[in-house]
Design a protein around this nucleic acid. Structure first.
Length: 419
DNA sequence: TCTGGGGTCCTAGGACCC
DNA sequence: TCTGGGGTCCTAGGACCC
């Protein structure tokens, strides 16, 4: 038996915990750079604001309906997420954190007669102890439990929990469930399925499995099996390290000065290196990419991505910054306004478990001590107390004008000292 | 008439998720 | 004026191996 706990309108709910005057009115949270809507209160949904909508397109509506708008405050949301997950861990036999606002619940050993009570109790405890409203769906597979959780949001009478295990109930739900709302079926697949006259989950599970596999590959077939009640996605442990690490940003303006872009890439590279060390990894490949504004039709366009294979796997900020900035310098063209850039590290392995290079003449121990010191100083005195000079001394300006305070983590830089 | 068979590794691209 | 960021997995095709 599987469960899914899903925080309702998560980012908006986090803002509301510390600002109750936001209850009952339309509220939205924006993506980085104050670009698109990425979280909406029910009231905002009701007046027709869509997920992913660029904020500048709905300025009038925002003004007319007096919608409260926030920049994304990830320090706050990350901490609230941690609080919710800690409670889930205490309330269920096992959990798999799936995203910042969702976790799958392992319900092994729980009697089916107890499921309803257990789910309902959990939503009550979490709301009381964290202030975050959570929906819990329970069923025979992960995909079905996602559907059960969605039902909670559609039918308030369910009181935020829904146990869907009887065959009869499942069929009834699937007959009405839209194909495009199924977990694992995105835009392309739902378009393809609809053009074959398959517009509900029910019609989908009547298909021939060979046909499903030929059209949607092995992953689509697994979704199909899950809807038929056959578990095909198991619990995964969350301790797994990232296989790739990415830092990228859109800039507030199109950048024509190469120096500015290079400094930004240095920053992204340094950020990736720090994340890499946090999971005790070393990387042997980086991809650096830059692109011009894809929404502008009347200016020259460019997209470059450069693959760098490192001679030795490394976690050194200075190595990674040097190689990435050198790579990006070689592809920038004058007269092009670059809007976004990023760095992706891959081919990641655990430090100390990779064979060294016989011909490497670097003092790796000294390098390791240097990185450790860098991380410790930045942990103690705040991020970017020490950084590579190639990142530049000016702070890049991003549009983030409607940020709420870091209500819960303002002292983190002091508390997290681990020297 | 008849073109070997069985692999691995790499990359680019496409699909999906929140 | 203004359009997010960070991930995962799978497949097809090419190069290469014996």
């Amino acid at each position: 038996m599987f469960g899914l706990a899903d925080c309702n309108n998560f980012y908006v709910s986090c803002e509301r915990v510390f600002n109750p005057s936001l209850n009952g009115i339309p509220v939205v949270v924006l993506s980085n750079n104050d670009g698109c809507v990425i979280s909406r209160s029910n009231e905002a949904k009701d007046i027709g604001i869509k997920m992913g909508e660029p904020i500048f397109k709905i300025r009038d509506l925002v003004k007319k309906e007096n919608v409260k708008v926030f920049s994304s405050n990830f320090a706050l949301y990350g901490d609230m997420s941690w609080r919710v997950m800690e409670r889930l861990r205490l309330l269920f036999p096992g959990i798999e954190v799936y995203s910042i606002d969702e976790a799958f619940l392992n319900l092994n050993g729980v009697k089916s007669s107890e499921l309803k009570n257990m789910a309902h109790n959990a939503t009550t405890v979490i709301k009381r102890e964290t202030g975050i409203p959570v929906s819990i769906g329970v069923s025979k597979t992960k995909t079905l439990s996602k559907i059960a959780a969605k039902l909670c949001k559609k039918y308030p009478a369910l009181n935020n929990s829904c146990v869907m295990i009887e065959k009869r109930d499942i069929s009834k739900v699937l007959q009405k469930f839209p194909i495009e709302d199924i977990w694992g079926i995105g835009r392309q697949y739902s378009k393809m399925l609809q053009s074959n006259n398959i517009d509900t989950a029910w019609k989908f599970i009547q298909c021939n499995p060979d046909w499903v596999k030929s059209k949607m590959s092995i992953v689509g077939l697994k979704t199909y099996k899950e809807l038929n009640g056959e578990p095909s996605f198991d619990f995964e442990d969350n301790t797994q390290d990232k296989k790739q690490i990415c830092t990228s940003r859109s800039f507030a303006n199109d950048l024509y000065e190469h120096e500015e872009i290079i400094m930004a890439v240095a920053k992204f590279a340094a950020s990736c290196a720090q994340k890499l060390r946090k999971q005790r990894g070393v990387a042997s490949r980086a991809v650096v990419f830059v692109l011009t504004n894809p929404f502008k039709d009347n200016t020259p366009r460019d997209y470059r991505s450069i693959v760098i294979n490192f001679e030795n796997a490394t976690d050194s900020t200075f190595d990674i910054v040097r190689m990435c900035t050198k790579a990006v310098t070689s592809v920038l063209k004058s007269g092009y306004g670059y809007k976004k850039a990023g760095v992706i590290l891959s081919e990641i392995s655990i430090k100390g478990e990779t064979p060294g290079n016989l011909f490497c003449d670097k003092d790796l121990l000294a390098e390791g001590r240097l990185m450790k010191t860098l991380d410790e100083i930045n942990a103690k005195y705040g991020r970017e107390t020490l950084y590579s000079a190639s990142q530049g001394v000016y702070k890049m300006r991003y549009n983030m004008n409607m940020l709420s305070p870091r209500f819960t983590t303002i002292w983190d830089d002091i508390i997290k000292v681990k020297i």
